[in-house]
Design a protein around this nucleic acid. Sequence first.
DNA 1: AGTGCGACCCGAACGC
DNA 2: TGCGTTCGGGTCGCAC
Length: 273
Amino acid sequence: MPELPEVETVKNTLKRLVLNKKIIDVDVWYTKIIEFPSSTEFIKKIKGQTINDIKRRGKWLVFELDDYFMLSHLRMEGKYFIKSAQDELNKHEHVVFKLDSGEELRYRDTRKFGRMLLIDKDELTDVKQIKELGLEPWDEALTSSYLLEKYKNKRLPIKTVILDQSIITGIGNIYADEILFLSRINPLKVTSKLTESDCANIIKYTKEVLEQAIELGGTTIRTYESSEGVHGRFQNNLLVHNHVGEKCPNCQNIIEKIVVGGRGTYYCKVCQK
DNA sequence: AGTGCGACCCGAACGC
DNA sequence: TGCGTTCGGGTCGCAC
């Protein structure tokens, strides 16, 4: 599933493939993907726009066009492919951007969970989806005191709160387990009870885990792949996620799987008190 | 405001 | 070519 490292990888790949190309038309085969404006308005406005840059904010891809930002969230299984117009349409290719190069940028999403928005250029920071995002992992403002302040009234388990995009943005279910394992924090620990040292560890290992994952091109579990069909290799480095019944790499205890806030959670109950 | 949970999707895995 | 059921994952919207 695309988390921050996968989105970063997709962004970098797409920049090599579509930068400075003009969108001459768009086909939308599943309109719910287009969250704002209506799909007909979306198509009308985006025609003739050139892709001048692609950035990332949290798990959002931000396509910088001439007059708009196009936001794209891959959610669970969204992927981009570059194909020729002659290639047969895959049943899961829901949005097709026709480029002036003759190629097509196709958005494929088996689960249909992904979303796109087209926003006027001066309104990007007013959009709820962007405005409510918390700090990027490498933001200098991400300090232990920032986390302590955000955490002090939270009675939810830390596993749930580490997934809250309005505090730190970019962490998903896979890396959450890895970060908590390396930080030696029990995923069920009530967030308001975290110490300054816990917070420092979360910050340290968030950066470490995400940086390593970006270097390896993201994680592949089940069906995720980046835009050229290249599979990430980080899955080989996961320490606890998806390792139920296997030995903890640290203490040899058996890794357990529990459900926290409705999310499958893998941890070592010996290492993570 | 903080919290809990169903809805959105559909392919894979599972149970029988 | 077995078929019906369950599960998962990010985010939102609604109820409390």
